[in-house]
Amino acid sequence: MTAVAVNNIVKTYGKKKEVAALYDISFEVPQGELFGVIGPDGAGKTSLFRILTTLLLADSGSATVDGFDVVKDYKAIRKRVGYMPGKFSLYPDLSVEENLNFFATIFNTSIEENYELIKDIYIQIEPFKKRKAGKLSGGMKQKLALSCALIHRPSVLFLDEPTTGVDAVSRKEFWEMLKGLKQQGITILVSTPYMDEAGLCDRVALVQNGKILSINTPQGVVQEFPYPLWAIRSDKMLALQREAAKLSSVQDIYPFGEYHHVVLKKGSTAAQLEEFIQAHQVDNAEMKTATPDIEDCFIALMKPSIDTATDSLNENASK
């Protein structure tokens, strides 16, 4: 069964609708899937989540959640989805326990009734249940917000950038929690600007400037990377980047951790790059093949015109 279906959603802001937040977006999420919406700030992630949680109206297009229309059936949707906004939105002057109780009561349920579902998460903050929510650390606030979003046992859970500004250790813990929830059959839509989190999703949509660049499994996105990819390094990284960028076989080069990733033009061999690395042996230059990750794919999708532009130039030249 389809948990979320989005059809040609368009959303603009401004008096003259001059700011396009979502540009003709369509996708489907089957029940029980952990679906990631991956993209930088300003990609349209929050607008999309607010439309699906019935908090914002689209300009055009339609969407359903659990089979209910986001406009007509908004009341039914609100009963069955959980939503954790990017900004901490619990009551800072209520205690941990009071916040959770409040959300349980609003949805006509109790903490006891659904304790099993939140147990693994809530147990970590239960020692502080008398503390006011506003006095919690970032990591604890996040766990409380997730508990509150789950307390009515939603069928679909929307998490808007739950890991933004959170350190690497807490981020890993958070994704472990999501895996546990998925096993309980909850459909989860999660947005994030961290590309490295894509691999933890069943499927991902890569979004940029209100458009979907690609929808696939994380492995599928990577397999679609169309260019030969190499990693190079030397003692003079900045100079290495500047000079390698001038090679005719090089389409793109950018820093990637302790290496630079070199994207070769389609069909190019590494011969020219090898020669270049040989010529820089004084600086201990080295090269190795690299496996693209989601960030490489995102960068290539953001700059799709380079190859096609040169292709069409060549075509024009040959005419």
Binding site: G39, P40, A43, T164, P193, P255, F298, I299, M302, K303
Partner: peptide, 12 residues
Amino acid sequence: EPTGGVDPVTRR
């Protein structure tokens, strides 16, 4: 944290 939430091209 100057690059939080910034796209991978701009980050570089």
